[in-house]
């Protein structure tokens, strides 16, 4: 009787262990397969992201080339034509009847103004020029252009020891700022634009604030597909290209603030 109980107990324990082993194998393979599947999915997503990043970079490179080309055309061709207009007007002026002289002088002044605008625009579009003068100077030029319109009060502050970062990063940062300033001019109805730059080894922080009518950031991002407006998306993509954090906050009738933070910027040289 005792032997039979022992044998039955042993059989039960062994069968239980066998089933347990079988279950463990099933569960192990389930986890293993799913882990592999997940890794594979992750790789595909990473590849897609890398591809879109390359696509974006090449798109921006083409855009830069185009802007560069336009800038050179403006400088070489258009400026030359405006100079010729100026020379012609100069020649016409002594022979012109006295009642038309004032008009010719006015046209000459307008041509000069056009010339200086063309030069400024050409400089802003020219990648080499931006690389040469640096991001800070280029941004200051852009802000000066805004100030010249006399529609905006421009306030700029700088903190920390100014430095230059990678030229590609400077270009992207500058284009990002152009987009922000362009949005201020187009939509904000602001009267004041404040920029502050904070240079430190740990991070570079640029804040551009306006006192305009503001907008709903979440709505604007959601509606960017419907309105086929890619401005905000482009800004985020540009920021991600230089590993920058872009934070846009806006309040109705108070204004908008854009904060660009580049953590651990690759500093090339400091500017005294």
């Amino acid at each position: 009787m005792e032997t039979s109980i022992f044998a039955t107990s042993l059989t039960i324990i062994i069968s239980t262990l066998l089933v347990l082993g079988l279950c463990s194998v099933v569960v192990y393979f389930l986890f293993l397969y799913q882990k592999k599947k997940f890794r594979h999915q992750k790789e595909i997503i990473e590849m897609r992201e890398a591809f879109s990043q390359v696509l974006l970079q090449s798109r921006l490179a083409i855009q830069e080339q185009t802007l560069d080309h336009i800038s050179k055309e403006l400088h070489a061709n258009f400026s030359h034509l405006v100079s010729l207009i100026n020379i012609n007007l100069q020649e016409i002026l002594p022979q012109a009847p006295s009642d038309q002289r004032e008009n010719i002088l006015e046209t000459k002044s307008l041509a000069k103004q056009l010339m200086s605008e063309l030069k400024a625009l050409s400089a802003n579009l020219n990648t080499d020029h931006i690389i040469h003068i640096g991001f800070v100077k280029a941004l200051e030029n852009e802000l000066n252009r805004l100030a010249k319109t006399k529609k905006y009060e421009i306030i700029t502050t700088k903190q920390g020891e100014e430095y230059r970062i990678l030229s590609e990063h400077e270009i992207i940062l500058f284009r990002l700022c152009q987009e922000i300033l362009n949005n201020i001019v187009k939509y904000s109805k602001a009267s004041e634009v404040r920029t502050s730059m904070n240079f430190s080894k740990e991070q570079f922080v640029l804040v551009i604030t306006d006192n305009g009518m503001g907008f709903n950031v979440a709505d604007a991002l959601n509606q960017s597909g419907e309105k086929q407006s890619t401005g905000l998306l482009n800004m985020h993509k540009r920021a991600s290209l230089i590993n920058a954090e872009l934070l846009i906050t806006s309040n109705d009738h108070i204004g908008t603030s854009v904060i660009i933070t580049i953590p651990q910027p690759q500093i090339l040289k400091t500017i005294q």
Partner: peptide, 30 residues
Amino acid sequence: LQEKGAILIHKEPMVWMALSIFVYHAVSLP
């Protein structure tokens, strides 16, 4: 296993539930 998408199964509550009741019921059944 057949699903097109993938999840981290060790982080899914339902997987832990199914796993536990499967082992419990299969092992205790005999």
